[in-house]
Design a protein around this nucleic acid. Structure first.
Length: 474
DNA sequence: TGAAATGTTGGGGCG
DNA sequence: ACGCCCCAACATTTC
């Protein structure tokens, strides 16, 4: 009567429909498979994600009281484990990457062929991507009507963690460390365990802390990267340590208790909406991570530079706001949402580098790397996506910095070599008089780079390049 | 979930 | 008193 619960991006006990289903039936055999066989090479789990996974699996194993860990192709391993363990049923919660959908339906078919029950559930989204349709029955391509349609539907209340008994008898798996998920030389993740607490308990604490301390003023202050008014829940959500239903219920409850929070809570939940929308788009347009959603962008002539993307990745573009963001990413595995837009826009528009190069870097370095969100976000910035930012909306990194980091605290934190510049020049050291630079100990071109491109020239060149897209779209 | 260029308006200095 | 210019402050348009 044992049921295998195959954990994937649902690393939690509470509000976990597959686990609840199995627990109600009898003994549970919890399984995780590190699967590098299914995704196409460019979308194998990135380095930062693997670090997170290592710690989240440890937390899951400990709270379950045991976890079978395997590595390889689940097409073989899951069916094989069902046979060897004598499990009568395999259950899981759905993933929505195109390759995962293909994998899971193949596994479901072969399990049923061998007489093993297979069932899947929704644990990761408020609505299945195919449930929300326009009047015409097709997918939504614009966020606002999509989210309005979602808001008209009820959200199921989250379920508590079930009682269950783990049965791992006769199963030999790997130790967590056999998966080699964490870096050693160099250990670019040093200190991350002080910044993050992967796992269900950490996710719950993060959510509670955000609702308590960050939600008030969220609508106005979430763009301020020098202030702690973002939730930092994205990696927890990606790995399913907390469910969107739980987030929904908690935020709504906070707003119910404190009516003044209503607008902030709605704004926050609409960010959950963008996550849903991205998954909706990926499901209906599976080439989203790899191809321009608007085909006219195929006509854009991206620059073929090696040095410029490298400077961008290292946070050495000479624009402090961009550089601070890129360094925050490398040092902590995350980047404030506002800065992501500026830094991404800079790569695509100022440097005219193909958005897919930025997407690949974020995929490897972000702890919250998520195929749907990452692809939709980059296409939004590039202007090639559904409901995207128009291409000619080109962020001025200096103006944006002054607006969303007015005292330069964010830049000073991540670009300490600029810390002694006065506020007036912290976002544009290249505008500072020689005396001011000397006073602050900044030597442009030595201690901090000069801008790798001139803003006004780069802007003009980007708009020039966009002409080809316009020509192709008629 | 822009920015820059261009257009309009109105107050104040000035001849 | 009046027209003229300047220019800040907004508004509109364009990319």
């Amino acid at each position: 009567m044992t049921t295998i619960v195959w954990f994937r991006q649902d690393l939690r006990l509470a509000d976990n429909p597959a686990l609840a289903f199995a627990a109600a039936r009898g003994p549970v055999l919890p399984l995780y498979v590190l699967d590098d066989a299914t995704p196409p090479p460019q979308w194998r789990m990135g380095g930062a994600s693997r670090w997170w996974l290592r710690h989240s699996l440890a937390a899951l194993r400990d709270s379950l009281g045991g976890l079978a860990i395997l590595r390889g192709d689940p097409r073989d391993l899951v069916v094989d484990l069902a046979r060897r363990s004598g499990a009568t049923s395999v259950v899981w919660n759905r993933c929505y990457e195109p390759s995962a959908i293909a994998r899971d339906s193949a596994i479901k078919a072969s399990l049923r062929e061998t007489g093993v029950e297979a069932r899947s559930f929704n644990a990761s989204l408020l609505n299945e991507p195919w449930e929300i349709t326009t009047q015409g029955g097709g997918p939504y391509k614009v966020f606002t009507p999509y989210w309005r349609a979602c808001l008209a539907r009820p959200v199921a209340p989250p379920a508590p963690a079930p009682e269950f008994r783990v049965d791992l008898s006769g199963v030999s798996g790997l130790a967590l460390d056999d998966l080699a998920l964490t870096p050693n030389k160099p250990d670019w993740a040093a200190g991350w365990d002080r910044l993050w607490t992967p796992g269900e308990a950490g996710a719950r604490a993060r959510l509670a802390d955000f609702l308590d301390a960050g939600l008030a003023g969220y609508g106005d202050l979430r763009d301020r990267c020098d202030l702690p008014h973002v939730s930092r829940l994205s990696p927890h959500l990606h790995f399913g340590e907390v469910s969107p239903r739980q987030v929904w219920a908690s935020a709504r409850m906070a707003a119910a208790q404190t009516p003044a929070l209503r607008r902030d809570a709605d704004k926050f939940l609409s960010e959950i909406g963008w996550r849903e929308f991205s998954h909706h788009l990926l499901f209906h347009f599976p080439t989203l991570p790899d191809r321009n959603w608007k085909a006219a962008f195929d006509a854009f002539e991206w620059r073929d530079s090696v040095a410029d993307p490298r400077a961008w990745r290292k946070g050495m573009t000479g624009y402090p706001f961009v550089d601070a963001g890129m360094r925050e990413l490398w040092r902590t595995g995350t980047m404030h949402n506002r800065v992501r837009m500026i830094a991404a826009s800079f790569l695509v528009k100022h440097l005219r580098v193909d958005w897919r190069a930025g997407e690949a870097w974020f995929w490897d370095t972000l702890l919250d790397a998520d195929l749907a969100n990452n692809a939709a976000g980059w296409q939004w910035v590039a202007g090639s996506g559904a409901d995207a930012s128009p291409f000619f909306r080109i962020f001025n990194p200096v103006t944006q910095g002054r607006k969303f980091d007015p005292q330069g605290a964010y830049v000073r934190r991540w670009c300490p070599e600029l810390a002694r510049l006065p506020d007036e020049f912290i976002h544009a050291p290249f505008e500072a008089p020689a005396g001011v630079l000397a006073q602050a100990g900044v030597r442009l071109g030595e201690t901090y780079p000069r801008p790798i491109v001139d803003h006004a020239l780069a802007r003009a060149a980007a708009l020039d390049g966009y002409a080809a897209v316009k020509a192709a779209s008629v």
